[in-house]
Amino acid sequence: MRYKLNPHLAYRKIGEFLYAVDSKTSMLHKFNETAEIIFECIEKGYDIDKIVKKIVSEYEIEENVVRTDVEEIIEEMLEKNIIEIEK
């Protein structure tokens, strides 16, 4: 399954954190480091497998642990309308 960013998001890395504002709801979101990586991967069009692979290769964490985290964060991003499922 592929995802894409909500087209109504404006976003910027400001200081240490990535912030994104949704113009339809005026909701401002702040991302932690892992969420930021996932956000950037989705922006590049990566699917879950590719996102997991990237994080595993960069951070040397077990794949099943990464996958669980990535799936949880993606679920949260979908709930908050930060990302959408690409049709």
Partner: peptide
């Protein structure tokens, strides 16, 4: 809370 935090962090760091 997040808007407030962003306002103050950019205010203090002059962004």
């Amino acid at each position: 809370k997040i808007s407030d935090e962003l306002f103050w962090s950019t205010y203090k760091n002059r962004i």
